[in-house]
Amino acid sequence: MEELLKTYQTVSDHQVLHWICVGGVSDFPENAGGCVKYKSKQVAVFHFERTQSWYACQNLCPHKMEMVLSRGMTGDAAGIPKVACPLHKKTFSLQDGKSLSGDELQIATYPVRIENGNVYIGFAD
């Protein structure tokens, strides 16, 4: 399981090698998430409609290693955009992937771009 977790590493804008189109804007729910597949990876994509911002992170919740984060509820904590895991409601910052529930858990985040009504996620592999 540790192995699986390691396959998810945060990608920052300048590390991006491929921008992958994962669907149209309207394929994703507003103020919630959807899951996309890239190679063997599962990535959760979130559309914060109120500020027109998009975020992406691993779909794997590091707490119990389940592929569920895309189905969690979104929101913010003191302005930081976040997602709450649907299994035990641990919350993670979508900005830097850090846990907001007072533990050491961490998720990988990916950059998102919107072009011509399409959603692109930046990967380094």
Partner: peptide, 8 residues
């Protein structure tokens, strides 16, 4: 704000 998993 955006709300959260409590108020929604």
């Amino acid at each position: 704000g955006h709300g959260c998993e409590v108020c929604k």
